[in-house]
C-alpha cells in the first residue's frame, strides 16, 4: 500500500516535471523530489538511490549531494556522508543550510569517535 502510493507519487512528480526533462537540472530535480518524498516516508535506501541518480544526471547539483549525505548519515555510512557533504559544499560554498547540516554531522561524529570531551 505504502509502495503503491509512493509509485503514484513518483508518477505524478514525473508527469508534472516532464516539461523540465529537457535539461539535466530539471531531471535531477525530479529525482531529488522523489528522493525527498521517500526519505520523509522513512524509505532511506530508495531515497539514496534517487539522490545518486540525480547526481549522475547533473553532477553540479549541490542539493542532491547534501541529500545523499543526509541519507548516508541516517544509514550509518559515515565516510560516504562526509564525502557527499564536502562535495555539496564545494558545489555551493555559500549555502548555509548545507554548512549547518555538515556542522551538525561533524559534531555528532566527533562525539562518536571520542573527539570531544564531556
Amino acid at each position: 500500500m505504502r509502495l503503491r502510493s509512493l509509485s503514484l507519487s513518483a508518477l505524478l512528480i514525473i508527469l508534472v516535471s516532464s516539461a523540465s526533462y529537457a535539461d539535466p537540472r530539471g531531471e535531477a530535480k525530479a529525482q531529488v523530489a522523489f528522493g525527498i518524498e521517500a526519505a520523509q516516508r522513512g524509505l532511506w535506501r530508495e531515497a539514496t538511490y534517487r539522490f545518486e541518480r540525480a547526481i549522475a544526471i547533473d553532477p553540479t547539483y549541490a542539493p542532491a549531494y547534501n541529500n545523499l549525505a543526509v541519507a548516508c548519515e541516517q544509514q550509518g555510512l559515515i565516510d560516504k556522508a562526509r564525502d557527499a557533504y564536502e562535495t555539496a559544499l564545494a558545489r555551493a560554498p555559500k549555502n548555509e543550510l548545507i554548512r549547518q547540516n555538515y556542522e551538525l554531522f561533524k559534531e555528532i561524529h566527533a562525539r562518536a569517535t571520542g573527539g570531544t570531551t564531556r
Binding site: I36, A62, P63, L104, I108
Partner: peptide, 10 residues
C-alpha cells in the same frame, strides 16, 4: 542513538 534534525534541499 543520537537523534538530530537535518534539512533536505531541492
Amino acid at each position: 542513538s543520537v537523534v538530530g534534525s537535518r534539512a533536505l534541499l531541492r
